[in-house]
């Protein structure tokens, strides 16, 4: 197990948000952290990274890390793409990536620019001027730049247009081939496609653990644990396998993504009706 949480508690502003969370993340593949809104998924991620005060035990790669500060935990080999991306809007793409470079690690710019050729083209642009999808690419690129032993990705498709969601999914799939991943995601189609194991939180505690396929195959259980909210998942176009690389236009290129940042686009049909 690359990451193990044992009885982790978090209290924020007087609310006891995590009430003894225990689970582990396999050293291979994608582990999905699931649950309805507000059950503490993001808090769990922040607890792992030491971004909130927490008690309990957290082991990373076999060593306890719960007494370390955030930057020390991260230096042990965690890449983190937070909810809302948290890219530095006033810094350029190059600067955002340069900031993510960690000492003592190789910097996989080749991989990053192969996955995100658009970022190379826009390297001198301030990240705040990019679309929401492109900003998410920067956030993911930061996690892939270093030799990480785990990457933690929190809601990577939140607020993105369906087409961009597909592209993000493809990138995450490529990433998951290289490094184990803890993924928080509401989009169940994406979860089904990427994740092996699933951990479900409810009211600050783990209520279910097991293979994602089995969980999602059980409609009643899915509804009970995750709410009826399959709508988002099902509205997503089924992802297609990326075309073999080498073509003139990379399948993951996001050139045509004209969405304003952080806005979900209206469905295609209504858009074409517009004058």
């Amino acid at each position: 197990m690359i990451l193990e949480l044992d009885d982790v508690h978090v209290t924020l502003g007087g609310s006891h948000i995590l009430q003894g969370v225990s689970f582990s993340v396999a050293p291979i593949g994608v582990t999905a952290l699931l649950g309805r809104n507000g059950v503490g998924k993001t808090t769990t991620v922040k607890a792992i990274l030491g971004l909130v005060r927490r008690t309990g035990r957290i082991d990373f790669g076999g060593d306890p890390v719960h007494r370390l500060r955030t930057h020390e935990i991260v230096r042990r080999g965690i890449g983190y793409a937070p909810e809302d991306r948290c890219v530095f809007a006033k810094l350029t793409v190059t600067e955002n990536l340069a900031l993510a470079e960690r000492r003592g690690s190789a910097h996989a710019y080749d991989l990053v620019y192969e996955l995100f050729p658009e970022l190379k083209a826009r390297s001198a642009q301030a990240v705040g001027t990019l679309s929401g999808g492109q900003q998410q690419m920067v956030a993911i690129a930061r996690t892939l730049l270093n030799d990480n032993r785990l990457i933690v990705v929190d809601e990577p498709t939140k607020g993105l247009a369906p087409k961009v969601v597909t592209e993000v999914a493809e990138v995450l799939e490529r990433a998951a081939e290289r490094v184990p991943m803890l993924l928080v995601e509401q989009n169940l189609a994406l979860v089904r496609r990427l994740a092996g194991d699933g951990v479900v939180l409810a009211a600050g505690q783990v209520v279910h653990r097991g293979p994602v396929r089995e969980l999602l195959a059980d409609a009643a259980l899915t509804r009970e644990l995750l709410g009826v909210g399959q709508a988002r998942g099902e509205s997503v176009t089924p992802p297609t396998r990326p075309a073999p690389s080498g073509g003139s236009i990379h399948p993951l290129a996001i050139v045509k993504d004209r969405q304003p940042p952080d806005e979900v686009s209206p469905p295609e049909s209504t858009r074409s009706d517009a004058p």
Partner: peptide, 9 residues
């Protein structure tokens, strides 16, 4: 509802 070594309130 607070058990074990929960955070101090």
């Amino acid at each position: 509802g607070l058990r074990g070594r929960g955070p101090r309130g």
